[in-house]
Structures are given as C-alpha cells and as structure tokens.
Amino acid sequence: MPVYVVVMYVLLGLAGLVMIAVVGSAVAEWMKPKHKRLAEARRRLLGTETPTGTTSTTVPLGLSEDDVKSIAESERFQWVGYSGRNDRRLNFRRAVVAADETPIDDAGAGEAGLLAALRVVQPDINGVARVDADVIAERMTQDEYRTAAASEGWVPAGREQQGDTTYLLFRRFDSTAVPRTGPEFLNGPPLAELRKHPRAKEVAAAVLAETGVDPLSARELEAARAAHVRLRARALRWTAPAVLLGFAALITVLLAFGTVTVLVAAAVAIVVTGCAIPAVRANRARIRAIAPYRHAYERLVSELLS
C-alpha cells in the first residue's frame, strides 16, 4: 500500500477522533446537571457586563431563553431585545450604582454572611471547606467575593451541589486542595475534629512512635496532599496523549489493512506505550508518596472511632 494512502487513513483517523471529541463534548453538555448549566449561564451573563450595565449572551445548550431571562431578572437585569442573525444573542441592561452611591440596605449584606461563615468553617481532610451558598444574602461581584474570602485567608475553589443545597468551596492560601475527580486521597474526618477526641494526643503519639509519622500534624498532611496533587497531574499529562494516540491507531487499523498499515499501527502502539509507562510510574509514585501518612492517619481514625 502506498505511503500516501496510509497517511490519508491516518488523517481520516484523526478526523474521526475530532468528530468523537465534538460529539462527546455535546453529549457531556447535555448530560450536565441543569444547576451547572444555569450557573454557567449566570457566569456568561455577568462576565460580559459592561461598565454601563449592558450585557448580552447566547442561550447555552440544554437551556431555554426563559431560563436565561429568569437568571437575568434575578440579577436585576431588564430584557431589551435580540441582536445578531446567525448567532442570536439576548440583550439585557440594568442600572449601574456608583461606588459612592451604594444603597445602605444592600451594603455588605452578602459579604457579612460570607465572612461570618468563613471565620468558623474548617477544611476537610482533602483541604476543602464548604459554605452553604445561602449565607450570601445579596448578590456579590466576583471581585467582592474573592476579596472577602482573601480577607479571611481563603481562596475560592468552585461550587458543589449536594441534593438541593449548593455549597461554595474554599481552600486556605497556604494549602493544597485535592480535586474532586480522580484517585482518592483520604476518606475520613478532618484533623480539627480528631483533635477534639480525648485520646487523640495519646493515640497519635503511639502511632508516631510506631510509624515515624504524626497523623495530627497539619504540616505532614499538607506535604502528603501536595504530593498527591502533583503526581496525579503528572500521570494525567501522560495519560491524555496515550489515550488519543491509542484511538488513532485503532481507527487506522479499522479503516485499512495491509503491511504498511500494521507497521504504522505498531509504531503508534510503541508511542502509546512510551506515554503509558510514565503515567503508570507517576501513579505508583503518588501511591508511595502518600502511603506513610495514609497509614498513620487510618491507624489514628481506627483507634479513635472504632
């Protein structure tokens, strides 16, 4: 088989991968929970607002115009009409209040509730603190939100939906937060809760003497958490190209048969293996890095809560 034919099949395979990615993205968007689509629509609406209070947005996939208008109304925008032909946009406008004309009734209402919650909340074992979104009584801009969190030593880390409750996620400035997806780090109560147990120091001292790791040490917990996140990211960086090249090789073999095709597929398989090996090594290194603290922590939890 001529080389140009093989090249054509490889290009067709890559085109197939692009098509799979596009369709997969659309399907993932359709499968996304509605509250996430609504949150994204709200971000789009606020993210395109001009200093004069005007904004425009398209209707996200899976939502209706009424959904977008309802979000706009909750943010005190007024509907002013459509714009665009091929890409129809919904236009809104709201009154802009000058910094020195902020209504007294609204001043700090959202910030006060958030600050009160951040002063008492504690991060979980994965470094994430959760605050009920209902504590924010009034709308806050992104800058106000980040500034309020920073004043208490927190950094916003996204949102999480649990049933009908929306939680705002935060992490400490000087700590690492474990991503909610991917391999698990630890599963158990936070150190602040364990320290309240009357036998916590006694058991922790025994575990330290046996393992050389203090399970109540925030420094050792943070070191293990940081290693977990760093090595997890390294594994993912090698996993992505391995998966894509594997699909390319599979589609190439399915589209054409012959000696040259097999050789091309074999070459791609070698590259895939070359990407997979570092990914496996990074994952094993991650498991080894967190094993000492994981063992000490699980021993402590078992002794205190059994």
Rank of each mutant, 00 (worst) to 15 (best):
R130G: 01
W238E: 05
V262K: 12
I290P: 00
L208V: 04
H197K: 09
G246H: 02
S151C: 10
D174L: 09
Q122R: 14
F173C: 08
E101V: 12
A157D: 10
A227S: 14
D66M: 13
P51A: 09
W238T: 10
A133P: 01
Q78I: 15
A227H: 07
G158M: 14
E101P: 03
H35P: 06
L304Y: 02
N187R: 14
S64Q: 12
T211S: 12
R171F: 04
T166F: 07
K32F: 06
G16R: 04
E193L: 11
T57F: 05
P241T: 06
A149K: 02
D132V: 12
R43N: 08
R237K: 15
P215G: 07
S83Y: 11
W79Y: 07
V260A: 08
L114P: 01
L255H: 04
S25Q: 14
A157G: 08
W154I: 11
A148V: 05
A289W: 00
N91Y: 06
A137K: 04
A41K: 00
A72R: 00
D134L: 14
Y82Q: 13
A256F: 00
K36V: 13
I251D: 01
L12M: 14
A240K: 10
P179K: 07
V128E: 01
V207A: 03
A282W: 03
P241K: 07
A133L: 10
F247G: 02
R225S: 00
P190F: 08
L254Q: 11
E202N: 11
T166E: 11
A279K: 05
F185C: 04
R232W: 04
V22C: 04
L194Q: 02
A150P: 02
A235Y: 00
V213Q: 04
T54P: 02
A282D: 01
L38T: 03
L169W: 00
G188D: 05
M31L: 14
L12K: 06
A240D: 09
T273K: 11
E193N: 08
V268A: 04
H228E: 09
Q78A: 15
L90H: 00
G163E: 05
P183D: 09
T147W: 10
M8W: 12
R159D: 05
V3L: 12
A248D: 05
R37T: 02
V22I: 15
R139H: 11
A265N: 02
D174G: 12
V262I: 14
Y297M: 01
C275M: 15
A226H: 06
I290K: 00
L38S: 03
M19I: 15
L14C: 07
L250H: 06
V260S: 07
N86D: 11
S83N: 14
S151D: 10
A149N: 03
E101Y: 12
A41T: 04
L263A: 14
A137T: 06
W154A: 04
L245E: 00
V121L: 03
V243Y: 06
H228N: 05
V271N: 03
L254S: 09
A133W: 02
L300C: 03
P278M: 05
N86M: 15
V23Q: 08
A157P: 01
P179F: 03
R159Q: 10
S306T: 14
D214S: 06
A26I: 15
A26Q: 15
R93M: 09
A117N: 01
V253L: 13
G53F: 04
D134V: 10
A117E: 01
G62R: 11
E144W: 08
